[in-house]
Design a protein around this nucleic acid. Structure first.
Lengths: 151, 151
DNA sequence: TTAATTTAATGCGTACACGCACTACTTAAT
DNA sequence: ATTAAGTAGTGCGTGTACGCATTAAATTAA
């Protein structure tokens, strides 16, 4: 049977497994796996607008907003008015948010090493490359080129 | 930087992209990507209990139940009492469900071929293999063996 | 400058994903 | 046979994922 047909289900199974395990690992700290992703992006990228955050997560802007509301209530994140763009708001981690993220990074270590000890560095590189290639091939914003090539 | 550290984010991005595109492809037929997965499992596996369905999706039993309630209301699925086990219910596709699934399979073709034309058969095989390896390494039910080996 | 278009964020509705507590039933132990 | 332990399904609560419509501000066109 076609190996390509199996990609979607294998991808789904792997992601859901990762998500479950991550949620379990972060739960004692009162944070979800996706909140961890958001904080990781803010941690490395510094202050950015909600739109930019949504793009680099990647997630829907309305989803990001819902997450930010929860994180802001708990004091991990702050949303300030954008200095030049009146529509936008700049998001950043508070001191408490940075502190929490350091905790989470250590809590997530077990998952990363657990998955890693079974997989060589080479295989990991290949996996990341193929995942990115797969994402890119599904991205409709890249379809323009394909259509143009056909015409 | 560690290629292994990038796996989770690459996996997340790829899955969400697949999920968005699939939802968009199936939306004209009034069905979600996950409902498609459920119906695909029933289509190839025949009648099974909700528990078995949850395992082979894979999803949480309570999630599967919620999906089944919606699909049953629309007449795509039926839940009968299990012949021997009074706790369980056997789930199967109705004739309308099988008809709908054939439509969906064709509708999903564009996504499968779009992703496939950018990736060789070999790469696809490798991707599936690595995804399964990654899932397995995260699976806590396999950790028992690891712990025993250490002891 | 005014008008049309685009864009960032919000609010609402639906479906998924899961954990947890509970019920009803089955299986195992004594 | 009775009790104990385990299992399938249900119901509830929270968070995520998204689409769509709306508002307000920025950008572009006229």
């Amino acid at each position: 049977m076609d190996p390509q047909e199996e990609i979607p289900l294998a991808l789904r199974a792997a992601y859901l497994m990762l998500h479950r395990q991550s949620d379990a690992a972060f739960a004692p700290y009162g944070v979800t796996a996706d909140q961890f992703v958001l904080m990781a992006r803010l941690s490395e990228g510094g202050a950015m607008t909600q739109k930019e955050l949504a793009i680099c997560m990647p997630s829907d802007p309305s989803t990001v907003r819902a997450m930010l509301v929860l994180l802001e209530e708990r004091g991990f994140v702050r949303r300030n008015p954008h200095p030049t763009d009146g529509r936008a708001r700049t998001v950043l981690l508070t001191a408490a948010g940075r502190r929490k993220f350091r905790q989470l990074w250590k809590a997530g270590e077990s998952i990363r090493t657990r998955a890693v000890c079974e997989m060589s560095c080479e295989d990991a590189q290949t996996l990341v490359r193929l995942l990115r290639q797969y994402s890119a091939s599904l991205n409709p914003s890249l379809m323009v080129a394909a259509v143009v090539n056909e015409g």
